[in-house]
């Protein structure tokens, strides 16, 4: 008994002095026989889940310098800790329930003020838009964060191919609406289809990506297969998944979360440590896979690139 107690206190000190918490935890579990024995059961459960998950196809893409100094979150956490209410409201359910989604064939319908509207097959879009990898920080409105190596293409390139007109002030995005494939849509927890929007100049910003992959492979269904939006300076819920429609419109679209709770979730949803969510602080964030929090940066650390989009905008009012 004494030996076990000593080790428990050991690890506490280690955690305070050392940064690589993740590795220590593994070591700690290995060292303490009792805990290891008990944790065998959940560990087996996790590994069997991972085995059941389908193999993701390897993608061809160009590496870029975006986020080369960032350390990606463990792939296991990125693919099992998801908010995707179409497949249930718990973090763990999308990884299982999303496997019912059919992603082939897939197309995006383009409507509104563009020269080239129509239904675009994903394959055709990808032929014109070569893939590249960018490592971005990802900050959820629930005050947790990850670092994710996305594979995708700049949304701006695709928008240019569509040739928007002068009335296209905003883009509205929609997720697939099919309760048979997306069982979470049978509940009215949010207004379906999941809808998001960007101002056209935000959408044209070079940081914005349409992602079809993570960690060098095609994107898992729970992460928004086959194609999703990535806007790294905005809260996670703006990064709409499994997109089937893009409308180029004059009026500011209403996003699903805005409709659900207008006082808590705004249209802009820029990561902003100075504007708290009414029920929790946004000044700090939990780092996924760790016991620690870190300070949240203005625009999620992309202020140099994007702050100019919001000159003269009262970010407290337009949160």
């Amino acid at each position: 008994m004494l030996i076990k107690k000593e080790k428990l206190s050991d690890i506490k000190e280690n955690e305070i002095t050392d940064e690589s918490v993740y590795k220590q935890r593994r070591e700690f579990i290995k060292k303490t026989g009792i805990l290891a024995a008990i944790s065998v059961v959940p560990a087996l459960m996790v590994s069997s889940c991972a085995d059941a998950a389908p193999e993701q196809a390897t993608l061809t893409f160009k590496k870029t310098s975006h986020g080369k100094d960032l350390k990606p979150t463990a792939i296991k956490h990125v693919t099992t800790y998801n908010n995707f209410y179409e497949f249930g409201t718990s973090k763990s359910s999308p990884a299982i329930a999303a496997q019912s989604l059919k992603i082939e064939p897939w197309s995006i319908t383009v409507e509104g003020d563009v020269k080239n509207p129509g239904k675009y097959n994903l394959e055709d879009i990808l032929k014109k838009n070569p893939l590249e990898e960018r490592i971005y920080r990802f900050r959820c409105v629930e005050a947790w964060s990850m670092v994710i190596p996305w594979v995708g293409f700049p949304l701006a390139d695709f928008i240019k191919q569509l040739e928007p007109g002068s009335k296209a002030k905003y883009i509205e995005f929609q997720t697939l609406h099919d309760p048979e494939q997306m069982p979470g849509q049978k509940s009215s927890v949010l207004q379906w289809p999941y809808t998001e929007g960007l101002r056209i100049d935000e959408a044209m910003h070079p940081l914005v990506m349409m992602a079809t992959g993570v960690f060098g492979k095609s994107i898992p269904k729970q992460n928004g297969a086959p194609i999703r939006l990535v806007v790294p300076w905005k809260y996670g819920f703006k990064n709409i998944k499994s997109i089937v429609k893009m409308r180029f419109v004059e009026q500011q679209p209403k996003s699903s979360w805005e409709l659900a709770a207008p006082l808590e979730y705004g249209f802009y949803a820029n990561v902003n440590p100075k504007v708290d969510h009414p029920r929790w602080t946004q000044s700090r964030e939990r780092i996924i896979g760790s016991f620690r929090r870190r300070k949240t940066d203005m625009f999620n650390g992309y202020a140099d690139e994007v702050a100019s989009l919001y000159t003269g905008v009262d970010l407290k009012k337009f949160f």
Binding site: F28, I29, P42, K76, T80, K91, F291
Partner: peptide, 17 residues
């Protein structure tokens, strides 16, 4: 309680939460 302790150290995505 003991189940929580083991889960806490079982490489959770968000152990504190």
């Amino acid at each position: 309680f003991f189940y929580m302790v083991t889960q806490f150290f079982a490489d959770q995505a968000n152990p504190v939460e």
